[in-house]
Design a protein around this nucleic acid. Structure first.
Lengths: 297, 297
DNA sequence: TCTCGCTCATCTATTTTTGTATATCAGATG
DNA sequence: CATCTGATATACAAAAATAGATGAGCGAGA
């Protein structure tokens, strides 16, 4: 019942307990001890005046109040991490940690070689790669730089348009040997196809451009582009993937390269505040350069 | 030179020193003592590995590195405050602190009566009003709810359009008695007028709609709408202000009410995450309701 | 020039926080 | 049914952070 603001460390402890589910696990995570963590939670509960967890022999069960506070605590953690990244990058030169957000396909198939070259040039750079098709928010500092497939709307962001990465219809030779080549686009309806599970914004955009997609009933559905790519490689059926990726495997054949091509607009985005920090600047430039090369300009 | 993450409290101390300019002042602010603050800064400098401040008998002068880190620390503080607001608002019912961001005119001339009524209904509510024409960012949690004059672009925000608050040309009777009524809009060029100092986005929008504005050379310039309103009330000259505000003073006359009317689009905006918290919900609804009434529907 | 007010640095005593060890409880397993 | 592993809670000692007091530097104003 004090007037003072709680220690910010309590918030960190709170979040860790929330994430780990028990005082003991949180203590291991934070390299503290279980009684300490317990005292932090007690103190926080006393200050804010209500219970955050129900203690049980199996761990701590968060109350509704605690769940409501979780996003705030997570954001606090993001900011603290961003501050630390910014701090370690100080002192001139390209050094410190840079956190990149990208989609799974890009992150796994395209970025590694670009980042390898980047790190060869700047050995003091530590690279964090956060892969998710959910768009991480640069404003919330979840990442320093993002490779995006949608044009960002924020004006506090600096954006470099890469261009449209071409997508095409592909199938493995093994599949085609067994089921034959489709004669025309309509023929696709009688083939085994690979598509999306849920309706994302991206899927809706495709549908708009290619009405035929509406009619297709894919027999293999996954939201992960990576899983779709794997399915194509495994010879499951016909699916959409990046042309440049497919070319790497001589057994993957592109279909209807004249009739079907979908450009996937791509952008590299960074918060304006970071443009002067060497590590972000260098990474940003390397990503732009590397992606342009990947596209064959 | 430790491997461990610094205490988050160090960040708070760091920011306070940055804001206050001295260890002693920061100590007073945080209700700690000067040696403690000094140790925090020393510890932080040791962990991140470079100097944050140059000590002097006049206080602490931030290095460039410290200035670079400042925005991060400020955001951390915003989030911590937001978490605390969210915490005090727990427990059902409309209680706790709600932070509202609005422009100066709205905040001073329009909101007080709305907020008074709101507080009469919910005495446990604490209202923070942050007035600035700079748009505070809801995503950064600088405020819970904002009254905006530009349509928000973020999709994580829930927005309620109020409509166009009508702006009109006004002058005090005292001025008109002395200098006469302008015959037509062109005539304004020979009158004393009140306008903006710098080119804000808002001003440019006005110019686009009213080309005549380009020609006007206001003799009284202020970015603060409040100052402009005060100038009109003082009989300085002819200026633009909200029609509803001008009506309150019987000595202020509206000019060219047929030829000149500028609707100022207004929105009440809130972060989506807050829509279920009672205190924000109630405040949001009260603001929408109150502003609609203010506009006369 | 002297004093006052502000600053930061340092030393020491005290308070606070943390860690260690232990007790207890619940569930899984042989 | 005993045992083992996970969990939280508590008591007490160790460690760490804090407050308090003091010294010294710098600048403003009488």
């Amino acid at each position: 019942m004090s007037e003072t603001e709680p220690s910010w460390d309590f918030y960190r402890t709170f979040l860790t307990v929330l994430q780990q589910g028990s005082l003991s696990a949180a203590a291991r995570e934070l390299r503290l001890t279980q009684p300490t963590i317990g005292r932090h939670i007690d103190a926080l509960e006393n200050i804010i005046g209500f219970q955050l967890f129900i203690r049980s022999p199996q761990g701590l069960i968060p109350t509704e109040a605690a769940i409501d506070l979780k996003p705030h605590a997570e954001q606090l953690a993001s900011n603290a991490a961003a501050l630390l990244r910014a701090a370690t990058g100080q002192g001139g030169g390209v050094r410190g940690t840079v956190r990149i957000s990208a989609s799974e396909v890009i992150g796994i198939e395209v970025l590694p070689s670009i980042l390898t070259a980047l790190h060869d040039r700047h050995p003091d750079l530590v690279i964090e790669l956060s892969l998710s098709d959910a768009v991480e928010n640069l404003l919330l500092q979840e990442a320093d730089i993002a490779v995006r497939m949608v044009a960002p709307e924020q004006d506090a962001l600096i954006t470099r348009r890469i261009g449209g990465i071409p997508l095409g219809l592909h199938a493995h030779r093994r599949y085609l040997d067994k089921h034959g080549f489709p004669e025309n686009l309509q023929d696709l309806l009688h083939h085994r196809t690979i598509g999306f599970d849920r309706e994302s914004a991206f899927v809706q955009a495709i549908r708009k451009r290619v009405p035929l997609m509406d009619l297709m009933r894919p027999s293999f559905r996954a939201d992960s582009n990576l899983a779709q790519l794997a399915a194509i490689r495994a010879g499951f059926g016909i699916g959409v993937c990046q042309v440049a990726l497919a070319k790497r495997d001589p057994d993957i054949v592109r279909l209807f390269d004249k009739e079907f091509e979908l450009p996937l607009e791509t952008f590299v985005v960074m918060h304006e505040n970071l443009k002067t920090t060497p590590r972000c600047r260098a990474t940003f430039d390397a990503l732009v350069e590397g992606l342009l090369t990947y596209m064959g300009r």
